[in-house]
Simulated assay, not measured.
Amino acid sequence: MWQSDFTHWPLSDGTDTEIISWLDDHSRFLLHTSAHPRITGPIVIDTFTTTMDTYGPPASTLTDNTMVYTTRLARGNTGQRNQPNGFEQLLADLSITQKNGKPAHPTTQGKIERFHQTLKQWLTAAGPSTTLDELNTQLNQFTHIYNHERPHRALNRTTPAVAYTALPKAEPTMEAFNQIWRVRHDKVDPDGHATLRYAGKLLHLGIGRAHTGATIIILIHANNTIVINKTTGEIIAEHTIDPTHNYQPKKPTPTHQTGTMT
C-alpha cells in the first residue's frame, strides 16, 4: 500500500509551494517527493503514474479526502455524489484498491504525516531554496539520505531501502474465470512484445506486431497469462511461462474463450 499527502513549504522570498509525497506503507520507503506551485488533480495522477512506472503498481493507496484524491464526500446540487475524479478512475481502471481516511481523523495517515515532519526538519536545517528547481534538488538529496542512509527506529534501525527490498510487493488483483489473477498494465513494443517480471526475472511475452502500441492488461495466475487489449477488451494472447527462457511464445490455441472482457 502507498500512502500519499501534500504539505506546504515556503521559498526564501516567502512564496508558498506544495510538496507531494508517495510513501510505501510497510517499509516507509520514499517512492516520490516533488514540489509544485500548487497540487492539482493532474499532478496527483502524473506523480502516481511516474512512480508506478519505476516501482510497479501498488495493491492499494491510502490518502485523505482532499478533492485531488477523491470526490467521495462531494455533493452536487442534487445531493448526490459527483463523478469520480481522474485519480479515482485511474485506480479503478488499474484494479488498485483506493482507501481514504475518516474525515477529521488524520492519524489514519499517520506515517505520511510523520514523514512530512521529518522532511520539514531536514529542509529547515538545509536552508531555504530561492526557486522551485532548487527545492526539488533538495528533495532529491533528501530522498537518497532518507531511503539509504538514515536508519529508521520503527524498522529496527535499518533503512527504508533495506526494508523495501526485503519482501515481495503486493500487486493489484482481479477475479476472472473463477480465479484470482495478478494484474499488470503495459504497452506492446515495436517488436510485438511486452515485459513481465516473473520469479525475479524480466521475461518478454510474444504478443504480435499487429498489436504494436496497444495498451494491454496482463493477467497472471501461477505460470499462466492472459493478455487483453485494454481498449477493446479482446483477449489477444495467452502464455504458459517457462522461466528458463527469456522469450515466451504465445499459445497457438487460446485456452479461454475468445471475445471480450470488461
Score class of each variant (00 low, 15 high):
residue 67 M to F: 11
residue 65 N to E: 03
residue 211 H to L: 12
residue 187 K to V: 15
residue 60 S to T: 04
residue 106 P to I: 06
residue 164 Y to C: 06
residue 112 I to P: 01
residue 6 F to Y: 13
residue 30 L to N: 07
residue 13 D to E: 10
residue 75 R to H: 10
residue 159 T to G: 07
residue 242 D to A: 12
residue 245 H to T: 11
residue 30 L to V: 06
residue 60 S to D: 00
residue 34 S to M: 12
residue 15 T to Y: 07
residue 113 E to A: 02
residue 227 V to I: 15
residue 158 T to R: 15
residue 167 L to K: 14
residue 46 D to G: 06
residue 42 P to Q: 10
residue 81 R to C: 10
residue 25 D to A: 00
residue 6 F to R: 10
residue 18 E to T: 01
residue 193 H to T: 09
residue 196 L to I: 12
residue 228 I to E: 11
residue 257 Q to V: 11
residue 209 R to H: 07
residue 172 P to C: 11
residue 160 P to N: 09
residue 152 H to R: 09
residue 132 L to Y: 06
residue 40 T to N: 03
residue 191 D to M: 12
residue 167 L to H: 11
residue 103 P to D: 04
residue 38 R to V: 02
residue 33 T to V: 11
residue 122 W to I: 05
residue 120 K to T: 04
residue 69 Y to Q: 04
residue 125 A to K: 15
residue 32 H to V: 05
residue 148 H to Y: 12
residue 90 L to H: 05
residue 188 V to F: 09
residue 80 Q to S: 13
residue 142 F to K: 03
residue 251 K to T: 11
residue 234 E to C: 10
residue 67 M to H: 11
residue 207 I to G: 10
residue 97 T to D: 02
residue 256 H to T: 11
residue 99 K to L: 15
residue 254 P to D: 00
residue 208 G to R: 01
residue 89 Q to W: 01
residue 243 P to T: 12
residue 228 I to R: 15
residue 43 I to R: 10
residue 53 D to T: 08
residue 256 H to I: 08
residue 218 I to N: 07
residue 42 P to V: 12
residue 132 L to K: 01
residue 170 A to G: 06
residue 131 T to G: 05
residue 131 T to S: 14
residue 183 V to S: 14
residue 115 F to H: 03
residue 8 H to L: 08
residue 195 T to C: 15
residue 6 F to V: 05
residue 194 A to V: 14
residue 84 P to K: 05
residue 39 I to L: 05
residue 80 Q to T: 07
residue 239 H to G: 06
residue 93 D to E: 15
residue 24 D to K: 08
residue 116 H to L: 04
residue 222 A to T: 08
residue 59 A to C: 12
residue 127 G to F: 03
residue 198 Y to N: 02
residue 67 M to G: 12
residue 209 R to W: 03
residue 129 S to F: 11
residue 153 R to Y: 06
residue 16 D to F: 09
residue 164 Y to S: 05
residue 127 G to K: 03
residue 129 S to I: 09
residue 49 T to K: 10
residue 63 T to R: 01
residue 187 K to N: 07
residue 160 P to E: 02
residue 260 T to Q: 13
residue 88 E to D: 04
residue 203 L to P: 01
residue 58 P to K: 05
residue 247 Y to F: 14
residue 209 R to Y: 07
residue 38 R to K: 10
residue 238 E to K: 09
residue 51 T to A: 09
residue 137 T to V: 10
residue 151 P to H: 13
residue 106 P to A: 00
residue 210 A to I: 07
residue 37 P to V: 01
residue 244 T to Y: 12
residue 150 R to K: 14
residue 44 V to F: 02
residue 233 G to L: 08
residue 46 D to H: 04
residue 64 D to C: 00
residue 87 F to Q: 05
residue 166 A to K: 13
residue 21 S to M: 02
residue 176 A to C: 05
residue 218 I to D: 05
residue 92 A to L: 02
residue 10 P to V: 10
